[in-house]
Design a protein around this nucleic acid. Sequence first.
DNA 1: GCGATCACGTA
DNA 2: GACGTACGTGATCGAA
Length: 571
Amino acid sequence: MFDTETTGLNPLTAELVGIAFSWEVGKGFYLPFPENKTEAQELIEQLRPFFESESIEKVGQNLKYDIKVLAKYNVEVKGKLFDTMLAHYLINPDMRHNMDVLAETYLNYTPISITELIGKKGKNQLSMRDVPLEKLTEYAVEDADVTLQLKEHFKNELGEANTQKLFDEIEIPLLRVLAAMELEGINLDKDFLNGLSEQLDKDIKALESKIYAEAGEEFNIASPKQLGIILFEKLKLVDKPKKTKSGQYSTAEDVLSYLAKDHEIIKNIIEFRGLSKLKSTYVDALPNQVEEITGRVHTDYMQTVAATGRLSSNNPNLQNIPIRTERGRQVRKAFIPRSEEYTLLAADYSQIELRIIAALSKEETMIEAFKNGEDIHASTASKVFNVPIEEVTREQRSNAKTVNFGIIYGVSAFGLSNQTNLSRAESKELIDTYYATYPKLRSFIHEQVDFARDNGYVQTVLGRRRYLKDINSRNAVVRGAAERNAVNAPIQGSAADIIKIAMINIYNKLQEGNFKTKMLLQVHDELVFDVYKPELENVKTLVKTEMESAFKLEVPLDVDLDTGDNWLEAH
DNA sequence: GCGATCACGTA
DNA sequence: GACGTACGTGATCGAA
């Protein structure tokens, strides 16, 4: 077992301060590293045979971090891996997985906390370098020991939860794939974003003046509190304004959009909000996230956060780059290939969640539609509105699409009527007709809820579990939420399983084939590659084949590919 | 300087 | 009476 101690959380800039080792519960040692880089490199060279040994199993807590740190020292971590954080994620995805919590829960022990060592995060926080060797040794070796003890605990529990395969064949191999993607990073066109920023600034300022004029005074539009008072006390736009749970006036988008058609100020506020969000969160923030060393943006994928099995992305979050609005999609133009010899390839699963629910429910009508390559929303519309598929109107298709997605989340008539132009009664009727059209979908949903009631959990196609402690709650609201989770988690989670398989297989093939092409991003149902142009045709075939054959369902998986000189063109 | 709240971006 | 899943980030604002 090993655990690196470094000068920071960013593996690209972090320097090794030391490494703790433990090979037997209760035993361990700590190897401090010199501050001098040449000397540090000399020391790590002596450990290279250990790290690069195929036969020595490596145990750690969040090994992706250690692997990335060591990669910057040009050391590869080979051999079998056991990550206690990943193990616990499979054992109970809804809990937290940091070592302090795990030690307290499973070993009834409280290790020395990092804040005890270096203080709370902030200006006055020390660097690991500043911690006296004796204290640091105790801390580091304790962590190593605790991790090894946790491993002893978790290796049996994985078997009991039937998730051993998922651990060995998905999460552990994926950790290496994610480390490689994160180290790679993606090229960003800063100049382009600076240009966007100036345009946005002009438009935001213009909207600001209009809003002040309409309000009759200047105030902070970005403050929901001040905005609420202007709209609902000064201008009295509605009789009974909706409040948030803390008693403020709600100025949320869905509340404001009701008022937009009658009030120019509301339209301007909605636009102001959209543009401000775009500017602050993306256009201005992204250039600051470019790493100096590489000149690229390196996200950090969280492998143990989403309870369903999905990844999440942060610093920066590259899984929520705008696409829906014309203004927003411009941001995607800033994500570009590494050089002129490269092009971006985006590959996304078409309707993967609907295909999964069709296959798992064995709903033949829907399966057939997918097998025939039909537009699934048009096909649904044609059936529920009882018109030939070529006569489906835009509105019918749109409503069918809303129901199709809603089904995956456990939508109610209320929710549907809120999302569409349909009344409550019309929504109810549509849902009833929908279930009459796809009867096995309804029984599938009930089976999931029943399974959860009987077993306390639901699972994905690969046996990834989500425990639902509230499934038998007497509180109908709480129980309803658990029931929706019982339906959604296997669907969303199975899609996550499938793309993870594809990522591992694609990564391995690109490695084996010595491709210059690199996988860069994952956005739940999409993978983005930086493709060396001479490899394009091979890579396209490889990616499509691996993604479509990652998991065999009764429904074909379909992947759309596109390339371009930026992420917008490629999508 | 922190955490809660609100709002809003994605699949 | 509430009322569709899963996330992360930025701005504000009140309490330290």
